[in-house]
Computed example of a mutant assay.
Amino acid sequence: MADGGGIKGVVKGAAKLSKQLLEFSNILLTTDDATIGATPKEVVWTFRKTTLYRYRSTNRRHPVPILLTFALINRPDIFDLRPGNSFVEFLLEQGFDVFLVDWGVPNDEESDLGLDIYALDHLPAAIREVRRRSGAEEVTLIGWCMGAALTGIYLALTPDAPVRNWVPLTMPLDTENGTYQTWMGSTNFDVDHLASNVDSLPGWAVNTGNKLLKPIPNFVGTNLRLWNQVGDGSINKVSHQAMSKWVSDNPPFPAKAFSDWVHWMFKENALVKGQMEMRGRKVDLGNIKQSTLVVTASMDHIAPREGTLPLMDIIGSDDVHHMDRVGGHIGLMAGSKAKREIWPDIVAWLEPRSQ
Rank of each mutant, 00 (worst) to 15 (best):
E110I: 01
E137H: 10
G221M: 02
Y55H: 10
I315N: 01
T208V: 11
V105W: 06
F266I: 02
R133S: 14
G178T: 12
R61C: 03
M323E: 03
N287Q: 14
A15I: 09
F47G: 00
P168F: 09
G221N: 03
L81M: 15
A205K: 03
N85E: 10
L201Y: 02
T50A: 14
L120W: 01
Q355V: 14
R133P: 01
I346M: 15
T151M: 08
H240P: 00
V105L: 07
A71N: 08
V347H: 11
A161G: 07
V220D: 05
K245P: 01
L22I: 09
L311Q: 05
E109G: 09
G316D: 11
A136F: 03
S186Q: 05
G327I: 03
R164K: 14
T35Q: 07
K237S: 08
D174E: 13
E341K: 13
D112R: 13
D116R: 09
L285T: 02
N26F: 07
A14T: 00
V230Y: 06
P162W: 13
I117W: 14
L141K: 06
K267Q: 14
A15H: 01
R325C: 05
C145M: 02
D284I: 11
G84Q: 05
V295A: 06
Y118L: 12
L350N: 10
E277T: 15
Q290H: 05
M146F: 09
L91R: 02
V88H: 07
D324K: 04
A255S: 15
T31K: 00
I346F: 04
V230I: 09
H263L: 08
Q241G: 01
I330A: 00
T208I: 10
D102V: 10
D190W: 08
N218I: 01
S196C: 02
G135K: 10
H263V: 15
N165C: 14
K16I: 05
K339R: 11
L311K: 06
K282D: 01
L226T: 00
L224T: 13
L120Y: 00
V247P: 00
K49D: 12
V163Q: 05
E23V: 00
R56N: 13
V295R: 06
R75C: 02
S200Y: 15
S18H: 01
G233C: 08
S298F: 12
D260C: 12
L194M: 13
N107C: 09
P344F: 13
E109N: 10
M184Q: 13
W349D: 12
F24G: 00
E306V: 10
V238M: 09
P106L: 07
K245E: 00
V11S: 04
I78W: 00
A297C: 07
W264M: 12
E137D: 15
D318W: 03
L150P: 05
